[in-house]
């Protein structure tokens, strides 16, 4: 554990909680892509199945349980409790175009051809593109609320910090996981355009040009 990973994890946690609180407090999920949230729920579920097979640390276990719990709570709020406010018409990204190629890639390129390992690989690849329905929705409606941009910023920051974490681990532990690194770079790059807008507009709600 190093400082980049710890802050990265906390940033990830902050993003998830910001989104949950935003929906809960405003009693609305307008502007939020339910599809991205379903993808994140799938990401956490397929990645953290190792909760059942291996114990890393109390920290690790607690964070995994919290991430999974929050992901499903978010999906529940969007599709059940506040579904009247869900903007399905604008959430029109075709997720099968992500899930199917990512599934194929996970079967082809992985560390070990075993059930849990392929699911882990699938989750890593899927996470790198899971935000696309959300970004697509913002580009389609042309706007995002301030709080939604904070959510996206924390999520992007988490991934950027993980890149520093991997550089750290490579130098000090000789550790590197090529699959995680490549997917992490792809994921961070997807946020670059957003980061630029976030910083130049002071994080205020913005008009997003297509």
């Amino acid at each position: 554990m190093n400082i980049f990973r710890l802050i990265g994890d906390l940033s990830h946690l902050a993003a998830i909680i910001i989104l949950l609180l935003k929906i809960w407090k405003s009693r609305s999920c307008a502007g939020i892509s339910g599809k991205s949230q379903i993808l994140f729920a799938i990401v956490f579920t397929t990645r953290y199945l190792d909760l059942l097979t291996s114990f890393i640390s109390l920290y690790n276990t607690c964070m995994k349980v919290i991430y999974i719990g929050c992901a499903y709570a978010t999906v529940y709020l969007i599709y059940m409790k506040f579904r009247a406010t869900y903007d399905g018409n604008h959430d029109s990204f075709r997720v099968e175009f992500l899930v199917v190629p990512v599934g194929g890639l996970a079967v082809l390129i992985n560390h070990d051809f075993s059930f849990l390992e392929i699911l882990w690989t699938f989750s890593i690849y899927l996470e790198s593109v899971a935000i696309l329905p959300q970004l697509f929705m913002i580009s389609k409606t042309g706007e995002a609320e301030t709080i939604t941009t904070h959510y996206l910023f924390c999520l992007g920051l988490y991934r950027a910090l993980y890149l520093f974490n991997w550089i750290w681990r490579f130098y000090f532990e000789g550790f590197f996981d090529m699959i995680a690194i490549v997917a992490g770079v792809v994921q961070t790059v997807l946020y670059c355009d957003f980061f630029y807008l976030y910083v130049t507009k002071d994080g205020k709600g913005y008009r997003f040009s297509i």
């Binding site: 994890d9 190792d50 070990d112 849990l116 390992e117 993980y162």
Partner: peptide
């Protein structure tokens, strides 16, 4: 083999 590789990151 199920889950041979141990992943310690989140």
């Amino acid at each position: 083999v199920i889950g041979r590789t141990k992943h310690d990151e989140l």
